[in-house]
Design a protein around this nucleic acid. Structure first.
Lengths: 206, 206
DNA sequence: ATAATTTTGTAGCGCACGCTCCAAAATCAT
DNA sequence: ATGATTTTGGAGCGTGCGCTACAAAATTAT
């Protein structure tokens, strides 16, 4: 049935994600993509269509490996408040340990390419919606388990947390340090605390 | 002393701001800029240097007219909490009433061009620092006036509010509606409220 | 072996990019 | 009026862009 592909398609996609992540959609050329993916230009078009289609594929790959994987892993613990806290903590850690300060491909794309491409805009908005749904699910669970104040509005707070994550991602890309990023997150996380009773002898961890 | 300029430099800069704001730095061509500014390509280079210099000038213009003007106006009231609330409310209103959903030029630039241009990155970070300083100043004032809880950490909360603004700007660019944007802001604004005393009855005396 | 099918590398198409050269046009001082 | 100086428009430079045509190379089915 013809000649076999000489390259690993998944591995090549991962390289494409790296380039789009680092430089953005417009600023990444097809020639640069092909070189980093270790294939020729013709093979790229043959395997993935055109640059835009490759970008959409790369976005999906990023969302799967970077966002959904994290959500699934954190949610497995069954501790909703810890899942939320750990999500923010991981975002901050990953943002700081990346020497290139790439931020989040979805956030970058939301500002860069989504506004000029309706279809990609919808894709990005859907991914962000999944993140908001993660927050909402866990807030709901925490509320019914009595782990957060009964006044907590899971929908509202989920939106707030999504906004906080986006803000952290933007600030991280500007080179903010840990103190700045944690200052963004901490007031939001404090909303998860149960109101303290009077006379705390020794505060236990929630 | 030579021929006079046939165009209004300030007006032309405003047009340049509009184009960079709508399409971003890379995606806006010098030809398009010149056309929208109503001048020839040669005049553009003669008056502003090159594309990058024009962009930096446009950024400064935007920061002056869009951010500093708002900060100064809101701060004149002398009511720090109202200034903060009004800032967020205006950001949301402006974001929603813009049919092009351009968001904020500074935020867009922070993700798009700043990471690949250290000098512009510093400029953008400085502008964001001015916004954070606005929040911090007013939180400090509110605290010494007893308008917010004495536990409030003005530095931390200023960082949080900056992050919230950035998050709102990102979400606005993805086409979020008023309910979503206000959900991001509301929990942050609630942190400005004084904690209510436990009032046993309606005639609460404090 | 042969034919059919698919992948690969090269070369290059047409186009838009940032930017510049240059001469005509317009304004100043003298 | 004259000469100096600046702005203006048009043409065009070199480069890199997304993408494709084409034929050699590699594989399967017969």
């Amino acid at each position: 049935m013809g000649r076999l592909k000489a390259f690993d398609e998944d591995r090549a996609i991962d390289r494409a994600v790296d380039r789009f992540w680092l430089r953005g959609y417009e600023a990444t050329s097809v020639r640069d993509l092909a070189e980093r993916m270790g294939i020729g230009g013709t093979s790229l078009y043959n395997a993935y269509g055109d640059k835009r289609a490759l970008f959409i594929t790369a976005l999906a790959r990023y969302a799967d490996r970077s966002m959904r994987e994290r959500i699934a892993r954190l949610e497995k613990s069954g501790r909703p408040k810890q899942a939320i806290r750990a999500f923010l903590a991981e975002i901050i850690d990953r943002s700081l340990e990346d020497p290139d300060r790439k931020g989040c491909l979805l956030v970058n794309s939301a500002l860069d390419v989504a506004p000029h491409d309706a279809a990609i805009g919808r894709v990005v908005a859907d991914y962000l919606g999944e993140l908001r749904a993660f927050f909402r699910r866990n807030l709901e669970a925490a509320r019914t388990a009595g782990l957060v104040s009964r006044q907590t509005d899971p929908d509202e707070l989920a939106g707030h947390l999504l906004g906080v994550v986006l803000g952290i991602r933007v600030l991280a890309r500007t080179g903010a340090d840990r103190a700045q990023l944690e200052a963004v997150a901490r007031p939001a996380l404090r909303l998860l605390d149960l109101p303290r009773r009077r006379a705390p002898a020794r505060s236990a961890r929630s």
